[in-house]
């Protein structure tokens, strides 16, 4: 087998969680072969290379250029394709984030290589990589047999848990292909919806609040619970978005975002069809509601009937305690 290349996603000079997931996914198919990581970014990005080493990459190829200050799919994909070609890799792994969904097809096209996206599991059998990915809104799982090398794979966010090792990676600096600043696609502005918050559609844990919170200010306890997890995003029901308590970007449901986190906590949400349509596929659903007849309990794995103003802060404290001792 040949080595596997993981594309390390970054924003500015910071590494994204997806970078570590890409390395983890790459390791899952590399077997005994080495995993290399490709890190592109503005000057200073090299500082995060050791993190990739700890995640399991043996070599980190770093390309620093001012042209990578903002997302630069054209230059980044050119570089990734070049690296993949010269390194004789078995596969190039991305994560199906906004960035990964942009890059992976470009790289596959440049290489004339097979592409599998939104992959939830990877198995290697001989020369074949067997990838699964959900189709039809998650109602069916398609199994793809990817032949030929390199294979371009984009794994679904949160599908591969990053590892923590004590490895140290060799860092190699590489030059960009052409001038990244001369890219035909120029990002002129980046507008963020909710500051540095996690996007509700991508977060592995979502804590959502509904009308049961009674007032916009009471969302503080939901935010606190999300903060306690560290990797949780705040979501909202349509009712509270309509009431102007929360931004539409946080709305979970038919007319908002469809989420599928590993843990979904519904706080004071009754669970009308429009909301269920957006979160029903979460792996574990916890509902907190005063009304034991609330429909949300029918889809919940764990239900807590009671006063959310007591339960949510207690839960936040318990989560913090567990993380501290855990």
């Amino acid at each position: 087998m040949a080595p596997v290349l993981a594309f390390a996603e970054s924003r500015g000079t910071a590494l994204r969680k997806a970078a570590l997931e890409a390395v983890a996914a790459a390791r899952s198919i590399a077997g005994a072969d080495p995993v290399h990581a490709l890190l592109v970014g503005p000057p200073g990005i090299a500082a995060v290379a050791p993190e990739l080493g700890r995640a399991g990459a043996s070599t980190v190829f770093v390309c620093e250029h001012a042209g990578f200050t903002q997302s630069n799919p054209e230059a980044a994909s050119a570089l990734a394709a070049d690296r993949a070609r010269s390194g004789g890799y078995r596969a190039v792994v991305f994560v199906s984030t906004a960035q990964g969904r942009d890059l992976a097809p470009r790289v596959a096209a440049r290489l004339g290589a097979p592409l599998a996206t939104d992959v939830t599991s990877l198995v290697v059998t001989g020369d074949e990589i067997i990838a699964t990915h959900p189709v039809y809104s998650g109602k069916a799982i398609a199994t793809l047999v990817v032949t030929g090398a390199p294979a371009v794979l984009a794994v679904r966010p949160s599908s591969f848990a990053p590892e923590q090792t004590t490895h140290t990676a060799t860092v190699e600096t590489i030059a960009p292909i052409g001038d990244p600043s001369a890219s035909r696609v120029v990002v002129t502005e980046l507008r963020t919806g909710g500051g540095a918050r996690l996007d509700v559609a991508e977060a592995p844990i979502v804590v959502s609040g509904g009308r049961g919170l009674k007032d916009a200010a009471n969302f503080a306890i939901v935010e606190d619970l999300a903060a306690a997890f560290g990797n949780a995003a705040v979501g909202a029901s349509r009712a509270v978005v309509d009431a102007g308590w929360r931004d539409h970007g946080e709305q979970v449901g038919q007319t908002g975002k469809t989420v599928s986190p590993s843990l979904y906590i519904a706080v004071g949400i009754s669970g009308m069809i429009q909301h269920l349509a957006g979160m029903r596929t979460a792996r574990t659903i916890v509902a907190i509601n005063r009304d034991k007849e609330a429909p949300i309990f029918k889809v919940a794995d764990y239900g807590i009937v009671g006063d959310l103003f007591e339960i949510v802060p207690a839960l936040a404290a318990a989560v913090r305690e567990a993380r501290r001792t855990g």
């Binding site: 039809y136 809104s137 038919q254 007319t255 908002g256 469809t258 069809i273 349509a277 029903r280």
Partner: peptide
Amino acid sequence: AEVQPAFQSLERNGTPWAFN
């Protein structure tokens, strides 16, 4: 834009919401 998921579900799932 928010009607798209409804049309899509109607086509794929035979119901306006993404239910099985």
